[in-house]
């Protein structure tokens, strides 16, 4: 039993270290305390609401978020705007709808059931407006990058003057954390770029943290439910395992063999 446990643990460790080795290049990302990590990790509601503000006022002019709907903004485990607030947010966007009875397309104010309005009609239009680079959809962006939230958080603060010897083309910027260090997105954040309604001072660091938290929620909207259920499930399993262990001992005590 002891040997079994040892070897089994060793296998699990090897497995996890193997999966980590997927990320061939190791980069030291900037660290911050994420409230959503750990066994009981939850989103910071304020950070999500501020993050949504940064996304709408800054990112959304180029980056779409096509898998989210305005109703998600009022759902449990998210930014938890009230339904009334979410309705106001949705109504502030113009949504293309139709065709109507006359066969015409028309625009109307957004509803809760609408998906987030996209900044460009299609990928080609997005590329044309951004010097050939497609600003990726942000719905699952955090999960689509090896470094996850740490990568996004670092990238937003990683703009710097290029070191001597590196020349940049027109419309290309230097970023410490970008793969290959060259990025076509200009530094999107600057101190005081947005004005937070809750009085938080909008430093680049603060905005980076808020918008990254928001992106994490966008990619994993059920993260809180998952953590809560996971804790219950594992506690339940551990208690059941202990009970079954003693039953097993009792049953096997009828014969002279160790289990």
């Amino acid at each position: 039993m002891k040997i079994f446990c040892k070897i089994f643990t060793a296998i699990i460790i090897v497995l996890i270290s193997l999966s980590n080795s997927y990320a061939a290049e190791k980069v030291n990302y900037l660290k911050t305390n994420w409230s959503f990590k750990g066994l009981f990790g939850k989103f910071d509601r304020g950070a999500l609401q501020r993050g949504y503000q940064v996304y709408t006022e800054v990112c959304s002019s180029c980056h779409s978020m096509k898998y989210l709907s305005y109703r998600n903004l009022s759902e449990q485990g998210g930014p938890e705007f009230t339904v009334a607030q979410a309705k106001v947010i949705a109504a502030s966007f113009e949504v293309k709808d139709g065709p109507n009875a006359d066969g015409e397309m028309f625009t109307r104010p957004g509803k809760l059931s609408d998906k987030f309005v996209m900044p460009y009609e299609n990928i080609k239009a997005a590329q044309a407006a951004n010097g050939g680079a497609y600003p990726p959809d942000m719905s699952v962006l955090v999960k689509a990058r090896g470094g996850g939230v740490d990568y996004i958080y670092s990238l937003l603060q990683g703009y710097d003057d290029p070191p001597v010897g590196i020349t940049l083309d027109e419309g290309v910027y230097y970023n410490k954390y970008m793969y290959g260090n060259k990025i076509k997105m200009a530094s999107p954040l600057s101190d005081g770029l947005v004005e937070y309604s809750d009085g938080t001072i909008a430093t680049v660091e603060q905005m980076s943290k808020d918008v990254t938290t928001f992106l994490m929620w966008a990619a994993e909207p059920h993260l809180e439910a998952r953590h809560q259920m996971g804790f219950k499930a594992i506690v339940y399993l551990i208690i059941l395992t202990i009970l079954v262990y003693f039953s097993m001992k009792k049953i096997w005590s009828r014969i002279e063999t160790e289990v």
């Binding site: 699990i12 953590h227 996971g230 499930a233 594992i234 399993l237 395992t241």
Partner: peptide, 10 residues
């Protein structure tokens, strides 16, 4: 299943 659940939930 405990190991399994850890991967699924965390």
């Amino acid at each position: 299943m405990i190991v399994f659940a850890f991967f699924v939930f965390y």
